[in-house]
Design a protein around this nucleic acid. Sequence first.
DNA 1: TGCGCTCTATGACGGCCGTCATAATACTGG
DNA 2: CCAGTATTATGACGGCCGTCATAGAGCGCA
Lengths: 197, 197
Amino acid sequence: MTAPRTHGPRERMVFAAAQLIRRDGVGATGMRDVAARAEAPRGSLQHYFPGGKEQLVNEAVTWAGRYAGKRIDRYLAALPEPTPGALFAAMTKQWIDEFEATGFGTGCPVAAATVDSTASTPSAREATATAFASWSTPLTAALTTLDVPPTRAPALATLMISTLEGAILLSRAQESTTPLMTVTKELTPLLNASTTP
Amino acid sequence: MTAPRTHGPRERMVFAAAQLIRRDGVGATGMRDVAARAEAPRGSLQHYFPGGKEQLVNEAVTWAGRYAGKRIDRYLAALPEPTPGALFAAMTKQWIDEFEATGFGTGCPVAAATVDSTASTPSAREATATAFASWSTPLTAALTTLDVPPTRAPALATLMISTLEGAILLSRAQESTTPLMTVTKELTPLLNASTTP
DNA sequence: TGCGCTCTATGACGGCCGTCATAATACTGG
DNA sequence: CCAGTATTATGACGGCCGTCATAGAGCGCA
């Protein structure tokens, strides 16, 4: 049994694809670029992804969705004061920090895939749907943990993800973290008012 | 003075570009497609847009922003009950209706340009910023008309646009208007509570 | 040692893209 | 009618893309 390296070439390519997609969009991301970025041999692309670019992109998007979902649990565990508003602030803070650290060149890969290939590639659209689902599901669970009524939690999760995604767009467009900070400030009272103590 | 036709070929090309961009993204939108869609001669592209695709895309994005801004005023004038929540509902309703009528194949061209060319094309990023601005400015003005304090109105405008853009993404991804309806329902109380009667 | 499987290497192919060069045509003002 | 500008027409060029074909390594196992 070959002890699997922590990150084999295949995983690296999926990760690299997600990185490039979130910066340049799906269309402008080339297979050759992905291989180079992953420091993986170009010949491995057709070996690991016989479905071609479509498969690679879909896996990258799916991976990104799962990644976002896992972060929710981590945030929830690390909240100083466990309120829905604080959870949302943790989500936006991640993006604020990243924008401040590395600039506004990179956004959300799921959003990029939604915009670029919803109309043209049915399987990609499915991938974005499942990605948002694997983000929304843990978020909904986290909200119920924070005393949000189960009937309300899914709606608030949708609201939080929508607002965050939109604020990411605005922040990138105007190269400022202000939109992210603004929506956090404005949404916090609403979120915190939704608990049943 | 040449009485200008209501829609000259140049305008048609800008409009067609916006249409294609919002469906396929910037990268997947070809110049030849734009000319064909606009029923305009291909040779006119380099004549009206010597700056090439970059110029055409930027104009399409700018146009889309102004279009969105004008719609705000129209909505405001047509509101049955003039409240911020009702205004937001009118904005989301437009998208709900469009999705139900023509499917989920088309989104917001400004969002598409933001995702596709923020990192690669500085002038395009500027175009998205001004587009969002020409959307946000009339919205802020409309909110103050609706008795939102001037200090609060810009923040609420940012919140509304962010949430709407994100909900458009989610709706396209899961091919359902539910996200748009959900965020409307959840945000309305907050918006209406922000007025000073 | 030799077979077989996984993985890599590399070049070629066809296609589409944005752009340019070069005209021909339409239209306006004199 | 003529000159000149605005517009349109069309083909070509170089470049990048995703994909395929083909062959070559590396390696476990009998």
